[in-house]
Amino acid sequence: MPVVVPTLEVEQELFASGTRLVIGCDEVGRGALAGPVAVGMAVIDHTVARVPDGLRDSKLLSEPRREAMAPVAEAWALYSAVGMASASEVDELGITACLGLAGKRALTALHELGVEILASTVVLDGAHDWLNPALTTRLRVVTRVKADRDCGSVAAASVIAKVRRDRLMIEAHAAEPVYGWSGNKGYGSAAHLAAIDEHGPSGLHRLSWLKVGAVATESRKTPLA
């Protein structure tokens, strides 16, 4: 099956309709048992004419390719940011609310960089708008299933967020190597689950998820993305 190459067709349609800025938005770490959930955002305007060669949804790239593409994606976007919500926040608020919280933090970072958020349209990967419920002022959000695969701005956000979160998990691995976070990035691999059974959870684990057998079981099926 040929790999789908992201384009700017959706973004260009939004520019044609009067949008000044498009903010591609994607989350990573939603299904992990440990570590934060991260939301990446990449901003472009109508002057951006093409998608960088090799840019893809982060799940379609190997780890070395993602590492190589992240600075390319950051240089290509006018602005980019990653917001995160911690494992303890996921325990307290739930994953959907934490997606919104991490997204709000990314938007705050963009605002501090000078991005006119209210003049923007957010293209959000998926079918559900989890961003607006976290905001005081509603934004124009366009949801699109597989936007991380099809839309250049969202693919860029995906890669930037994935690499940023992966690096945090690799750093955490150095302090607590028994969980294998440098390889599993906090997802529920068999070795990771065995380490939890043997050593108990760490401060980076989502304790509420470990208490629900169905979630832990489902995590075994979750791709390391």
Rank of each mutant, 00 (worst) to 15 (best):
P71Q: 09
C98L: 05
S58R: 01
A73T: 11
V37E: 00
V122Y: 12
S120Q: 09
L61I: 09
R56K: 06
A119S: 15
M84V: 13
E89C: 02
E13N: 14
A77G: 13
E116H: 10
P36R: 07
S62W: 15
R56C: 02
P71G: 06
R20A: 13
V123I: 11
G103L: 10
A102E: 06
A119L: 13
A81P: 01
S120I: 12
I117N: 01
D45T: 10
S120R: 09
K104V: 05
S86V: 01
C98V: 06
E13K: 14
T47Y: 08
G126Y: 01
V22T: 06
E112T: 12
D129S: 10
L78A: 10
S80C: 15
L14H: 13
A38Q: 02
C25W: 09
A42Y: 10
A70D: 07
F15D: 13
L14P: 01
E13H: 12
I44G: 05
L107H: 14
A42W: 14
E92Y: 02
P52H: 11
V72I: 11
L99C: 07
L124E: 06
R30V: 08
R65W: 12
D45F: 08
A87P: 00
A38M: 03
R66C: 01
T108R: 09
C98A: 04
G35K: 01
K104D: 08
R105H: 04
T121G: 02
P36G: 09
A68S: 06
V72Q: 09
A97V: 10
E74C: 05
L113G: 14
G103A: 12
L33G: 01
E112W: 07
V37W: 00
V51S: 07
A16I: 08
G35C: 03
G103Q: 11
L101N: 05
S80F: 15
V43E: 13
A77L: 13
R65N: 09
L33T: 00
D26F: 02
V37L: 03
T47F: 03
L93T: 09
V82N: 03
S120C: 10
P71N: 07
L78C: 11
G100N: 14
A73N: 08
R65Y: 13
H46A: 14
L21G: 11
Y79F: 15
D57E: 07
G126H: 02
M84Q: 12
L118Y: 15
P64N: 02
F15K: 11
G94C: 04
A127E: 08
E116W: 07
A70E: 15
S58K: 00
G18K: 04
G54M: 14
A70F: 09
V43A: 13
I44R: 03
A73M: 10
E67D: 12
R56E: 07
T108N: 08
A97E: 15
H46Y: 11
L113Q: 15
V122R: 06
H128F: 04
L21A: 13
R20T: 15
V51P: 01
A81C: 06
K104Y: 10
S86R: 00
L21Q: 08
E74G: 08
H46V: 14
